[in-house]
Amino acid sequence: MEFEKVISGKNIEKDYKSFKLNVPELNIPKGFATALIGENGAGKTTLLNILAGIRTDYKGELTYFGKYSDKDRESNPVVKEMIGYTGTDNYYLPHWTVEGVEELTSLLFDNFDKALFRKNYEDLAISADGSFEGGKKVSELSDGTKIKLVLASVLARDTDLLIMDEPASPLDPLMRDKLNDLIRTYLTEKEGRSVFFSTHNILDMESVTDYAIIMEHGEVVETGFVEDLKEKYILVKGELADIEKAKDILYTVSTNKYGFEGICLAENLDKLAGMDVTTETATLFQISVAIMKKNTRVK
């Protein structure tokens, strides 16, 4: 399917001693929230770091916003100003105060809005009473609250693309829901904005995910808009008696005392003819797990 891309890449490669990232083609749609899914060690963080310009020791070509190359990213201040990035963990040093974080971010980014940062700080309830506590040290904040501080900071910049590495992981369920709201608001506040995030919390992030990229062993194994993936992959439920026959065409099978269920390609449904099976629309979580299981090396 053709769509406008916020980032496109060709032949992206990064070699480690025991791992190789190899992505012949990468397309991230503009104007949508794209989830990067994969098991631990699949190469998600490496890919995100390459896209955010944190790693520059890779091979391949990247194009940002349809017109800037990765060389432009390092030579033209406009590109990185348009990209907001959050890493896997809080990256503020423990002795920094909230005001220090504010000062540092304003030093690093021209489009950082201090007033908006303070508003975000209050909206995200970073302090117990909701007020701005400039003198509070990062070391005094809980893990989840540190991530909130990172979010308050990155959302205080006028960017066109957010790249987030596992933003949901340290957050409680309520805050994950809030994160979804923040992403939706970010996307709708300004036309053409895009979000690209990695996640293990597919269930929690599914409601905000428009497009998914699934990685295994450094390679992209599936991509597509969630609605298209849900047409491509079907959840099948059937009698235990048919499980042996169905196994061959199912990506994954799980059983209970009532029968089995698994994911299969919609195009293979006719191969289940004659069996007593019902079909349902699969969730992104079920599809992702099925694809990961098919490609994993975990026994």
């Binding site: 955010a52 944190i54 590109v79 990185k80 990035y85 890493g87 990256y91 503020y92 690093l108 980014f109």
Partner: peptide, 21 residues
Amino acid sequence: IAVKGQIMMDFVRSSYKGMDV
């Protein structure tokens, strides 16, 4: 001066002028 923390360096590298700072 605490510039060695690799995680924090990710943050610095995400800024165009981070390394200059």
